[in-house]
Design a protein around this nucleic acid. Sequence first.
DNA 1: CAAATTATTTGACTAAGTCAAGCATATTGA
DNA 2: TCAATATGCTTGACTTAGTCAAATAATTTG
Lengths: 313, 313
Amino acid sequence: MLALDSEITDSHITAFRRFNRCYTRKIGTLREGLLDSEFSLTEARVIYELATREELTAGEIVRELDLDAGYLSRILRKLEEVGLLKRKASLEDARQAILTMTRRGREAFADLNERSNRQARSILEAVPASKLPELLHAMRTMEEILSPAPERAPYILRNHRPGDMGWVVYRQGVLYAQEYGWDETYEALASRVVADFVEGYDPGRDRCWIAERDGVPLGCIFLVHHPELTDTAKLRLLHVEAQVRGLGLGKALVGECMRFARAAGYRKVTLWTQSILTAAQHIYRQAGFRLVREEPHHSFGADLIAQTWEREL
Amino acid sequence: MLALDSEITDSHITAFRRFNRCYTRKIGTLREGLLDSEFSLTEARVIYELATREELTAGEIVRELDLDAGYLSRILRKLEEVGLLKRKASLEDARQAILTMTRRGREAFADLNERSNRQARSILEAVPASKLPELLHAMRTMEEILSPAPERAPYILRNHRPGDMGWVVYRQGVLYAQEYGWDETYEALASRVVADFVEGYDPGRDRCWIAERDGVPLGCIFLVHHPELTDTAKLRLLHVEAQVRGLGLGKALVGECMRFARAAGYRKVTLWTQSILTAAQHIYRQAGFRLVREEPHHSFGADLIAQTWEREL
DNA sequence: CAAATTATTTGACTAAGTCAAGCATATTGA
DNA sequence: TCAATATGCTTGACTTAGTCAAATAATTTG
């Protein structure tokens, strides 16, 4: 298609430029924080590179920060003169010098870093707490789309802590209301499940995992002991936030669960789900579960088919 | 953890700063587009102001763009010399001059604009077409969150809908964990309360209000019928988000509750709270409640004094 | 109407960055 | 092998962007 070799319209460009204006203004305030330090913005960027990556050469910094080589040369001399930086001869190439920060250099970096953190914090503090996850997610999205960085966004799995139980009920309530129109009785059910989990919590037999990135929760799963059968565990409340689906997060959560179940000595894991939650079914099947029972019912304001899945360990 | 008065963690700050680094770099390439034009970035900003807003004075530009007055003075002289700008005497104040672009000035602006558009387009063209909507959505999200909303929308009180129950548990869990170090058993309790509310919901006797602004929930309150006493209601789960305290939201929520309680025919409203929640006590007292009982207990991982308050209607 | 304030201009200055030439070392190809 | 060329870094000379304080003229205030 020759004529339309892009789908970019004027309104896209307008939106993009409007964002730039808005963000440039925000960033302007960030710079002010460095203003009373003894380093210029560029010097601070150089110090950042030197401090966060060991054994650099001048050329690497030039390429990384896209600086003029002469300018950098002077900056490095200044840093060396004030004792923040040491050069040592490179064995591979006598034209280069290996740059390393001195202890004082690392201190200067720590100070700059602290300043920047405070600046960043002051901006984030002005954001309503409820909007913070949304903001951080939007930033991450932009980064991943704009920068060709191929590395897959890392997430971490951690156990629950205060705040998580409510988050689970909250997000699942919103999610299932949005996607399937379930009413608040689902939240009531989820509330009961988390309440039971917390009150009956036995660290050897129960566990909750929260998947998190940049301090923002992305998904969760629970493994709880069966009320009657000692050798059976129940997998509950699996969900993955809509924006991060397709990264294998669900699979990772279930995998973590199964590892724990095995280590805890369970012989069997069961789970209860709904037929319309097809993405989850795929994950369960992959994890070795099989569907053992189906049953129509009316719950959460909808007609559903409940499913029971099982897997022997 | 020290008394955290915000929920901003190191990982949030790291993520924010990582985005800034990434985006600063992107913006750097945007500037290059102006490099081969005859105007500096600041000159371009001045031209933008002059072209998009008629009848400016120098002082207005100084305030709008936060420039040094002397610097601006020289920029304006340059623009006038090359024939982009005309000054005419102000009738109101002879010290000022009214600045207007000439036809050539508007052409120069159109040219700059075109350049910026091409730059923006070239960045957007590098984005896979399938990711474009996601990118633009993320930008708009950031803008809306970061830039101070122009109109101060007042809050509204509305009844609950799907998503709210979970939000209540979530926010209260986070709030009390942060402010008082309560553990997740508080969330378990709140979960049970909302579950009971939903399952026993009787529209004539029970109600939940969510305070909301711009679609963002800010606080909540519940009024539920007493399990045994027909003429008694219980007020539960009052909370106001930290950022909007001091606006009288708590008072408004309790007031709404009391109006409903009267209309529903209750003769008495009781509530159970903790002695450390002093801000709430003030609201209860103002609303005509009186403290009838205190009792020490250990709950939510803390030593507390429970209070029962009552008010006859 | 004098004193204080405001809007703008001017002169003197500095910080930040660019460009090109130069030097020493490395690499390449006849 | 060695001359030609490329690379890594430095230096000098320069420009551009921006700051600061004093000056000037008009306006407002007590």
